[in-house]
């Protein structure tokens, strides 16, 4: 039964698991951001930032989601996501918990570049 085996073609592949595996995910970006901008911890996911966001009207950018994704270690593709922000600062104006959103975005950007490696 040895010799060259022809690759079996099944016509489908194994679906990717979309469950967040918190224990497997790296939280280094979250750790860095938390230290660099402590108001990161204050977000209550109310979505006020995302509702006022210019970028959010025309792309799927949401700072509320970005914060959560950083927290859960779901940072794949986030570097590109975060460039959609134009740093206008409207989100900071409306945040009810005083999160320093502009600096937060800059710090996430920085951490994704350096920390995630």
């Amino acid at each position: 039964m040895s010799g060259a085996v022809e690759k079996v073609r099944f016509g489908f592949s194994v679906n990717k698991d979309r469950q967040i595996d918190y224990d497997a995910n790296l939280k280094n970006v979250s750790d860095i951001v938390q230290k660099a901008e402590p108001t990161f911890n204050l977000c209550i996911s109310c979505g006020t930032c995302a509702s006022t966001c210019t970028a959010g009207k025309f792309t799927d950018f949401s700072l509320r989601k970005v914060i959560l994704m950083v927290r859960r270690g779901e940072t794949k593709g986030l570097e590109n996501e975060i460039t959609k922000c134009m740093l206008c600062g409207k989100c900071q104006l409306v945040c009810p918990r005083g999160v320093s959103t502009r600096n937060l975005i800059l710090q996430i950007h920085k951490a994704l570049k350096t920390g995630a490696l």
Binding site: F10, F12, K16
Partner: peptide
């Protein structure tokens, strides 16, 4: 449906 079998096998794999 054959196209859905990737979902089926992913369940077993899990």
């Amino acid at each position: 449906v054959q196209a859905n079998r990737g979902y089926s096998i992913a369940c077993s794999k899990k």
